[in-house]
Design a protein around this nucleic acid. Structure first.
Lengths: 191, 191
DNA sequence: TTCTTAATGCAACGTCTTTGCGTTAGCATG
DNA sequence: CATGCTAACGCAAAGACGTTGCATTAAGAA
């Protein structure tokens, strides 16, 4: 038997990762991304730069890692009584979170991370999209199953929200979210 | 009178910019982004690194600059006889271009460029979105004007295409483009 | 306690980035 | 054609960052 490889939870490895993440978040709040360097983070976290380089490769991957943590939903979507209501509520929350400077920056950090370096569960970008999809599936699972609704919600609700944020257009009016959700549901039924 | 500031077309400034752009494109075709450095580009273009640093700030901005050039449409959208047909044709072309490794990389380079450094006509991201919008407006201008169609096309056709590319999801089937266009047009009429 | 292994710290080296200063190219004027 | 002006470039030095081999340490297992 091989002696159980992999990082042990609670060990030094985990403590360091936590410290580095914390320092990264802290610096991201204070300074501009372009002004943050690996040695800075290392100093703040109390580790050597080489440790960070070895674990994350480069600062882009570290940022993406921290961003993913931010983008990961910490609770299942709220329940309002109807699928439509749940979707609207979730999408409005999502829009608000992602529109904030922090959310926007996190989105970019994920998008700009390597797409060649894929872990066992996909690229960072894919993981990010999966967070969304999972939340949507949870909501839709509460109602009657309709083929392909998830994809429609992604295409007609999530995509417009994100596109406008990333490409610096006027952010979506929160009111329009309702319209988008109706559209996505209509689209699913009609096809 | 101030002696007419700004770069003179055809001068040394323009030649250097052209050479640097060319070298950047060339290197982007050969190597991976992460392996390309400013000194490399400078050597290939026959200039000093400091010139590039002074003009573009960092390699990210240079990449974004080159990417914008790639994303800029070089011709007005094809005409097929109907607005719907034009939109479908344009969207399919757009999907194909952006899905290619080159297109995808260009999109990312634009998205990851600074959003604080805005030129007189907006950020790089905004310019990129404007290219799309202009093409769409051209097409819509050929038919009867309907309030807000442009935004619907952006939200329901462009956004899904781009979102899926950036977030590493399965790219849209070219067939589904037609469906998206119809939805966008329906949406515009119905509201 | 002792052993094993993965991961860290240290330190040195090479490369990139930044910056001051002298020079040049392009354009305008007489 | 000669002269002057200005923005931009090349050069070179200094500083900061990225990378790597080697010794050491921390955490868990026997």
């Amino acid at each position: 038997m091989s002696p159980a490889p992999g990082p042990r939870p609670g060990g030094r490895s985990a403590r360091i990762q936590q410290a580095v993440h914390a320092s990264t978040r802290k610096l991201l709040d204070e300074r501009d991304r372009a002004d943050i360097t690996v040695p800075m983070i290392a100093a703040d976290a109390g580790v050597t730069p080489s440790t960070i380089y070895r674990r994350w490769g480069d600062i882009t991957e570290l940022f993406a890692d921290v961003a993913l943590e931010r983008l990961h939903p910490d609770a299942p979507p709220r329940e309002t009584g109807s699928v439509r209501g749940d979707l609207v509520a979730w999408a409005q929350d999502y829009l608000e979170e992602m529109s904030s400077p922090v959310g926007r920056a996190a989105l970019r950090d994920v998008v700009m991370s390597a797409d060649t370096l894929r872990s066992e569960d996909g690229t960072n970008q894919f993981k990010c999209a999966t967070f969304c999809r999972t939340q949507i599936e949870t909501i839709l699972g509460r109602g009657e199953p309709v083929q392909g609704v998830v994809e429609h919600v992604i295409d007609h609700v999530v995509a417009p929200i994100i596109y406008r944020i990333l490409f610096d257009l006027d952010p979506l009016e929160p009111d329009r979210v309702e319209e988008l959700v109706d559209h996505a549901l209509d689209a699913a039924v009609r096809v």
